[in-house]
């Protein structure tokens, strides 16, 4: 069976985030912005089909507040 989920996830750092909102443009399926402009991330691993755009979302952040990390590391 083909794998549909990666073992990667997006990790958001609320202290660094400055509400640029670019991540939600790059990955609207996985990121919406709250009423103040800060991202709300869909829970769980990133599906394979969205991986490229999840990478783009992380790369788009001007303050690097969004990172793609292995799921095991983010669970705490």
């Amino acid at each position: 069976m083909a794998r549909t989920a990666t073992d990667l996830t997006l990790q958001w750092n609320p202290i660094d985030c400055r509400a640029f909102g670019l991540c939600a443009e790059e990955l609207p399926e996985g990121i919406v912005l709250d009423e103040w402009g800060y991202p709300l991330l869909a829970a769980g691993p990133i599906p394979v089909r969205l991986l490229r755009r999840a990478r783009a979302a992380a790369a788009a952040c001007p303050v690097l507040a969004l990172k793609l990390v292995a799921r095991s590391r983010s669970a705490s």
Partner: peptide, 19 residues
Amino acid sequence: SPAAATSGVAPAPAAPSRF
């Protein structure tokens, strides 16, 4: 960058069209 709507209402999370 989308920003706080300062009114008292709590809008639903923004779709990209609000950008």
